[in-house]
Design a binder for these strands. Sequence first.
DNA 1: CTCATTTAGTTAGTATACTAATTATTTGTG
DNA 2: CACAAATAATTAGTATACTAACTAAATGAG
Lengths: 164, 164
Amino acid sequence: MSEKPQPQDPVALDLRLPDPQPQDPLALDRQVCFALAAASRSVIGLYRPVLEPLGLTHPQYLVMLALWERSPRTVRDIGQALRLEPATLSPLLRRLESAGLLTRKRNPDDERALNVELTAAGRALRQQAEQVPGQIFDRLGMNVAELERIRDGLTMLLTASQRA
Amino acid sequence: MSEKPQPQDPVALDLRLPDPQPQDPLALDRQVCFALAAASRSVIGLYRPVLEPLGLTHPQYLVMLALWERSPRTVRDIGQALRLEPATLSPLLRRLESAGLLTRKRNPDDERALNVELTAAGRALRQQAEQVPGQIFDRLGMNVAELERIRDGLTMLLTASQRA
DNA sequence: CTCATTTAGTTAGTATACTAATTATTTGTG
DNA sequence: CACAAATAATTAGTATACTAACTAAATGAG
């Protein structure tokens, strides 16, 4: 599809128009990091209209997913699950608290730690959230197996980049 | 907590320990969007120390890649290549101009458009940038074929999400 | 027990990114 | 030609995200 015939004939090479793609290591379309950044922004953009009725941004949705798996959790625990710094989560959690979806209370056994816990409204929101993955899937219109293959590749990439 | 066992085989199900993963469509680790967001942030984080000597952030590096392919380009043109809004590029380009890597001049033939053009310093930076992909590759320590497979999957995902 | 060290969050400062609104030009239509 | 519509950037406003610096609390070695 985006394939160019591999020029095996040296004579033909000189006749080609300048094209950054062929073997330029700096060609934009060859960079994994560009594919990653662009796909991430684009896919997350798909979530915007779907999450908007729930009153959530995509990062907020991820925090809710973490809390629906377990609640209460500490800031650090959520950060480890989502691979986000506490400094990023701090204001984000405050907004979710303002939205009435969770509470933030110091842990009585360790006053340094903050217990982040779902409210009834936060738990109730899960029902609506259950429709989200299906809606995104429909919009993407991709093969399930293909999507899972991509996700598994990304998980591998995440592991490799964290090891580095 | 937030678990409701799917009662298909009530007897066997009751014996399972609570585990969000198996078939919960909202399980964090199943979400393509989470793998995407986390991998994107983590891989871009790998670039930080590598790009720091060049004085570039990762988005700035992507803009430079676009300009090394062709210069001058308009803001809109760069935005289409990088899949970024002009509103995002506007301040970013101003910073690159302050860094002396490019110039911003209105197009005489169309005063609405802005010609973004590399300076000599901007062109010269390419030499150092040529070392970047190799350094990242070394840090990742992943198979080339594997990486290209992931990149191609991401490109497919990007296409699908833009079509939606 | 005491104080240096570690740990958990928050705050400050910078840079993305998005949508919506605005400004300046250019284009197209009657 | 006049002017509404379209186009290109910028600005305003909100929300992430990161590092570094800071505060408060818990831990641990002597």
